[in-house]
């Protein structure tokens, strides 16, 4: 359930404006909720009409090993972007492991089809420029739902653009200019189908929730915060827990003049 080219200067400028917005776990700044809900509804229509049927057909028509190979190739193609971001985050261990993974899987793994590096115990990292900005202290800014691409926030949306600029496949030019376009289109289409296939059960669960929009917003935001911490639990995970004292069987007292905390 996870889920463009913009200048780096714009990232820093907009993010500077966003630094006053709430970012701690459990709170999501969603000033464009009305618009976002419309895009969410649009995405649901597109997904049910096109993406989901294609993803299900892909699952039925292909063996698991084939799909793993596709996922491995797509992941391997992303390793240069991951590598640059580990460098920008000042994480030399992750940089070395990512560089090693790319070398091993591109050669012994036959252009990334087989994940030999994981079999050898080389750790896998998943970093992007949105996370890098988060490591640098940039706040997420407003929550956004992007058409077709799904949940994001201003920081991560800007990060996508920068990641595209980091991606060698986007600036390598082949003699045959049509080949450039074919590579880009193929990678985008295959990537979308493979990602949607992996999310079949997750999106089913999401749709069963009382409020799928809220569930996705909370889930995306907290997952991204955890990714910025590289999967470590925050230092004081209990500081923002709500009090239960007002809600027990001995009576309920709402705080005067206050609504429920925003998710």
């Amino acid at each position: 359930m996870k889920f463009q080219a913009v200048a780096a200067l714009a990232v820093l400028t907009v993010s500077a404006c966003a630094t006053t917005q709430p970012s701690q776990s459990g709170e999501v700044y969603d000033p464009w909720e009305g618009w976002n809900r419309k895009v969410y509804g649009f995405n649901e229509v597109v997904d049910k009409a096109a993406l989901e049927p294609v993803a299900r057909a892909y699952r039925v028509a292909t063996p698991t090993l084939f799909r793993e190979g596709v996922n491995n190739v797509l992941s391997n193609l992303r390793q240069p972007v991951v590598f640059v971001n580990t460098v920008l985050q000042g994480n030399p261990d992750a940089s070395g492991e990512t560089f090693g993974r790319f070398l091993i899987n591109s050669t012994a793994g036959v252009a990334g089809i087989f994940d030999v590096a994981s079999a050898l115990g080389v750790a896998k990292h998943d970093e992007d420029f949105g996370q890098t900005l988060g490591v640098w202290g940039v706040e997420p800014g407003p929550y956004i739902i992007l058409p077709v691409m799904g949940p994001s926030n201003l920081r991560d949306f800007m990060g996508r653009g920068v990641d595209n600029a980091f991606d060698p496949l986007n600036w390598t030019e082949f003699e045959d200019r049509d080949l450039d376009n074919e590579i880009m289109v193929t990678r985008t289409v295959v990537g979308a189908i493979a990602t949607r296939e992996r999310l079949i059960e997750t999106i089913e669960t999401l749709r069963d929730q009382p409020e799928p929009y809220i569930a996705m917003r909370r889930n995306y935001t907290s997952q991204r915060q955890a990714a910025i911490r590289n999967g470590k639990i925050e230092d004081d995970p209990y500081k923002d827990l709500p009090d239960f004292d007002d809600f027990d069987e001995f009576g309920f007292e709402e705080e005067s003049g206050s609504d429920q905390p925003q998710d």
Binding site: I214, A226, L241
Partner: peptide, 16 residues
Amino acid sequence: DIDGNLIWLAIEQRAQ
């Protein structure tokens, strides 16, 4: 704990 993300069941239910 899901990959460093603590999911509290009651808090998630409450939001929704």
